[in-house]
Design a protein around this nucleic acid. Sequence first.
DNA 1: TATGAATGAGAGTTCATTCAT
DNA 2: GATGAATGAACTCTCATTCAT
Lengths: 193, 193, 193, 193
Amino acid sequence: MPKKIDHEERKNLIFRSALRVFGEYGYKETNLSLIAQECGLSRTTVYQYFSSIDDVLHYAVKAGTDSLFERYTSPEWQGTCGPFELLQRIISDILDRADEYKTEITNFILVMKTLDMDLDETIHHRTVKLKLFLSRLIRKGQTEGEIKQTDTADLVGKIIILIQTYCLHLAFFENQAKQVRELLESYILSVKA
Amino acid sequence: MPKKIDHEERKNLIFRSALRVFGEYGYKETNLSLIAQECGLSRTTVYQYFSSIDDVLHYAVKAGTDSLFERYTSPEWQGTCGPFELLQRIISDILDRADEYKTEITNFILVMKTLDMDLDETIHHRTVKLKLFLSRLIRKGQTEGEIKQTDTADLVGKIIILIQTYCLHLAFFENQAKQVRELLESYILSVKA
Amino acid sequence: MPKKIDHEERKNLIFRSALRVFGEYGYKETNLSLIAQECGLSRTTVYQYFSSIDDVLHYAVKAGTDSLFERYTSPEWQGTCGPFELLQRIISDILDRADEYKTEITNFILVMKTLDMDLDETIHHRTVKLKLFLSRLIRKGQTEGEIKQTDTADLVGKIIILIQTYCLHLAFFENQAKQVRELLESYILSVKA
Amino acid sequence: MPKKIDHEERKNLIFRSALRVFGEYGYKETNLSLIAQECGLSRTTVYQYFSSIDDVLHYAVKAGTDSLFERYTSPEWQGTCGPFELLQRIISDILDRADEYKTEITNFILVMKTLDMDLDETIHHRTVKLKLFLSRLIRKGQTEGEIKQTDTADLVGKIIILIQTYCLHLAFFENQAKQVRELLESYILSVKA
DNA sequence: TATGAATGAGAGTTCATTCAT
DNA sequence: GATGAATGAACTCTCATTCAT
């Protein structure tokens, strides 16, 4: 009976190493040797878990964002305050986390672009639950008279776009991210009833 | 009497080929063979003008945007209409040209990021003249009563950021670029006196 | 009480899988993974029975033809007709079976050649019983006046060579195998008394 | 003006090295390193002349047999004796040369088989001129009363098949080639008028 | 006995770069 | 100045084989 290893865990170990290597060396310099070295495995061992280097990258960008916005449905993000303040706090938290994972976001975008993956669609998948959640929150805020009566879908759409804009600026024009944050915050304030 | 060859001209020929190859093949696929082929020179000849391939790329992305916004100082963009309409038309033209050069913009950003070049600074250099020009135009518009009296620097800053945002979305989230354009257009309208 | 496993049987299982894989994928594509997969064992288990992959192949091509011509000594191939007709039927059956196992024969030859094994000697071993059997049959035919009085050994030798020729053409010049069959059949007819 | 190298000559140098390596190491062991080493070039230099290793092999088997039977149309093989004797001498010469190039023939067959090239068709191409030449010779012999009046095409076809058979036995059953030669020689004698 | 885990050796291939003419 | 020739370094990927359980 040989040692049993959790494949999923190993895959995670590897792709997280991949993301770290991206962060340190940039996409063009990233190769299997570095990734294997980073996670203390031999080059060939990686092939036990991924069929190719592109497979690693695909997995990395997919798994790396899977449960991105799940946290906001947890109880601690519910009912502690009114809908508008909750909206503010959630958006603020998203941007803070974007700050924290700046390198990962940048690499995520670069890798997806380089692998010719569909960013639009991927982002859509990752944010669909968040959109739903925000919609409900906003409608609740409107019912409770905290948020202006405007087209909810349009409002959510704009928020999402501005969050993406923040991430893009973070990744490519660091200096201006702060201004985008202000823009988003003032936009939120403008929908207060 | 040996043939005299204009070094600068050759460098231009080469880096423009490099940009064209970027546009067609993307950064990861771009290599010296393709660039040399594109400009009808042999691979080795390129080394007479650039010390390495990274040198070509650095030069390309730097010089590639040099006279980007010069056109708006030409007479045909002056005096044909009032300051506000001119502002609208210039911004519209910038976005249209961004549409046209979408691939080049995308690769430009990717290459700069991959080469660890300072996008912030580069963009600042490229847009400093445009900013100046827009400032004057806006101040003129304010004097003539066509544009609201607001902080000019802030207004110009926001416009530039939104233009950059448009380019970023164009490059990475194609589907949403249209909404960013609307956002920018409605923002411009909101400063009309 | 540990499970007892018949080593010989396992070896047989493995080499028969190897032969099947040869037949399907050809020698160059055959590897241990495929063989192990084919017999439902893990790659490493094979090493319990063979010391290397070449060992498997050696064994396979040697043992793979062991009881090739045993069938002709069975009662159903005896006494049902006269010696000459029996000779005709046996040769026809051999060629038919060669047709059926064309791929296996081809790979068998290729593998032996690639492994630097002595085809001459191997074939000699495999056919020695058949030769003996044919000799007896021919001599019986000569006694009964059905077959011409010629040098039996020479006759048998020629038949064997022509059978081998048929196999070789089958393996390498498919289109001409039919003509070789005709050649062999007409040769047999020519020794009829 | 850099040194100019005859590409065709280099290709020849390389594929001849390839054939030599086949002869020494066998197909399975042959690789680009060995071929490059054999002809004193670096592994990468080979790629200046061939696009892949399979390309080398294809070229080798094609070019290796291109002018195989051209010699028999030269004057020294003409008019020195009567048609029947010439036929005997040509066939004898072909078999002698087959003896001489035994290794090459073996590798030729193995490589073609492994590369999934059409042996039937290739051989047809290589022998079409020889067939024509033999047809004319035989018809001349028939006119001059030296050769029996039989179906020329059939006769030529049988000779070609027997030559191929000789090559196959040479390659795979060395010990029996001699008997095939005798078979062919006696067959030729049997068509003497 | 059986097998998952791991790996070293080596394959084909690409490409920036140097050298000699 | 220009360029064919040549190559070393590095990459992805395969596979037989060993190790530890």
